[in-house]
C-alpha cells in the first residue's frame, strides 16, 4: 500500500475536513442541509377563533353543520346530537338559530350514511324540526329517501323506510304529489318487496344478492310503510276537506283560490324551467291521477303479492290485511 494509500488517505481526509469559517462570509451549508423554502400562490392560515365571549348558538349551529362532513362517525353523530338538542329545546315562538331551509339540505345526504348511529341520530334531528318547514323540502328529501330505499345495504334500506314514514307523517300530501314522488316511489316499493307485475317464467325467483328479503320482520316493515304511503296517496286528504267549507264567509266564496298561495313554487307542476319529464317523473297532484297510475302500474302486482303474504299468516298476515284494506278503500271510487 504505497502511493495509492496516500491518495486514498487524502480523499478520506477530505470527507471530514472542517469547513473554515470566515468573518463577513455566510456560513457554508452542510452537505446534508435541505432547502425547505417553497413557493405558493396563496397561503391559508387556519386559525382558531380568538374572541373572548362565547360563540352564539347560531354560530355553533353553523359550526356543527360544517362538521357533518367530518370523516369520523362519532363526530358526525355528536354534531347531529348537538343540533337535535338545540332544535328540540328551542321555544316554538322564536325563529330557529339556523333555518330549516339551511339544515335540511345539509343533513339530508346523511340518510345514506354508512354508520347506523349517525342515521338514528339523523332521524331524531329530523323529527325535532317543525313540521311546517318540511313541506318545502319534500322533493329533495324524497330523492334521498328513494336512494336509501334502493341502496345495496339492507340496513340503509330499512332505515329509509323510517324516514319515509316520518316524511309521510309530516308532509304526506307533498310526498305523493311532488315530481316523481308517486310512481318512482311505488316502483321502489315493488322492487323492495320483490312483487312483480308479470312473472317471466314459472321458475322460483332466486334469493336476491345482498339483501335478506326473506326476513319477515323486514317485510312487515316494508308493507307497513307501503300502507301509509298508499293511504297518503289514495285516500281523501284532510286538507282537501277543509277547502270545501267556505260557505260561512258568505259573500267571499272561494276567496282562497284567488289569493296567493302560501306554498313556495306554486307552479312547479308546469315545469317551466326544468328538463322534460316522462311518465315516471311527472307530478300527480290529483287523487284521480294517482289512482289511474296506480291501477296501471302497481295494483295487479300488489294484489298478487298480498295473496302470498296473507298465506304467511302471523304478523305478516296482519300487515298484509291492513294493506289490502287501504288498497280497497283507496280504489273504491275508481272502479265505480
Amino acid at each position: 500500500m504505497g502511493g495509492a494509500s496516500a491518495k486514498r488517505k487524502k480523499e478520506k481526509k477530505k470527507d471530514f475536513q472542517k469547513p473554515k469559517l470566515k468573518v463577513g462570509k455566510a456560513k457554508p451549508k452542510a452537505a446534508n442541509s435541505t432547502d425547505t423554502s417553497f413557493k405558493a400562490k396563496a397561503i391559508a392560515l387556519k386559525q382558531q377563533t380568538l374572541s373572548t365571549n362565547a360563540p352564539t348558538v347560531e354560530a355553533q349551529c353553523a359550526h356543527h353543520l360544517g362538521l357533518l362532513n367530518h370523516k369520523s362517525d362519532t363526530q358526525r353523530r355528536d354534531s347531529l346530537a348537538y343540533l337535535t338538542t338545540v332544535m328540540s329545546t328551542h321555544p316554538p315562538d322564536i325563529p330557529l338559530p339556523q333555518p330549516s331551509s339551511v339544515i335540511i339540505p345539509t343533513v339530508q345526504r346523511l340518510i345514506l350514511d354508512g354508520s347506523n348511529a349517525v342515521r338514528q341520530q339523523l332521524l331524531k334531528l329530523l323529527q325535532s324540526l317543525p313540521k311546517n318547514d318540511i313541506a318545502s323540502n319534500t322533493d329533495q328529501l324524497l330523492l334521498h329517501t328513494r336512494a336509501g330505499m334502493t341502496h345495496l345495504s339492507t340496513e340503509i334500506r330499512t332505515f329509509a323506510l323510517d324516514v319515509l314514514e316520518w316524511l309521510l307523517a309530516s308532509a304526506g300530501d307533498e310526498v305523493v304529489s311532488c315530481a316523481g314522488g308517486w310512481v318512482k316511489t311505488l316502483k321502489c316499493f315493488m322492487s323492495l318487496l320483490g312483487w312483480k307485475v308479470e312473472t317471466s317464467g314459472n321458475w322460483t325467483a332466486p334469493k336476491s344478492f345482498g339483501k335478506s328479503s326473506g326476513d319477515s320482520k323486514i317485510q312487515v316493515k316494508q308493507m307497513n310503510a307501503l300502507t301509509s304511503f298508499l293511504r297518503a296517496g289514495l285516500l281523501h286528504s284532510q286538507t282537501a276537506m277543509q277547502v270545501g267549507n267556505g260557505a260561512d264567509s258568505f259573500p267571499l266564496w272561494q276567496t282562497e283560490h284567488h289569493m296567493l298561495s302560501e306554498r313556495s313554487n306554486v307552479y312547479a307542476h308546469l315545469n317551466l324551467f326544468g328538463a322534460h319529464r316522462d311518465e315516471e317523473a311527472e307530478m300527480y297532484e290529483d287523487r284521480e291521477d294517482r289512482q289511474r297510475v296506480f291501477h296501471d302500474r302497481a295494483e295487479a302486482a300488489i294484489v298478487a303479492g298480498l295473496e302470498q303474504a296473507t298465506k304467511g299468516g302471523g304478523e305478516q298476515g296482519r300487515a298484509a290485511a291492513s294493506l289490502r284494506k287501504v288498497v280497497k278503500e283507496g280504489m273504491i271510487d275508481y272502479r265505480t
Partner: peptide
C-alpha cells in the same frame, strides 16, 4: 332483479 335495483339506485343518484 339486483341489477334493476342498482339501476334505480343509479337513477336516484343521477337525479340528485
Amino acid at each position: 332483479e339486483d341489477h334493476q335495483q342498482q339501476y334505480m339506485q343509479y337513477e336516484t343518484q343521477r337525479d340528485l
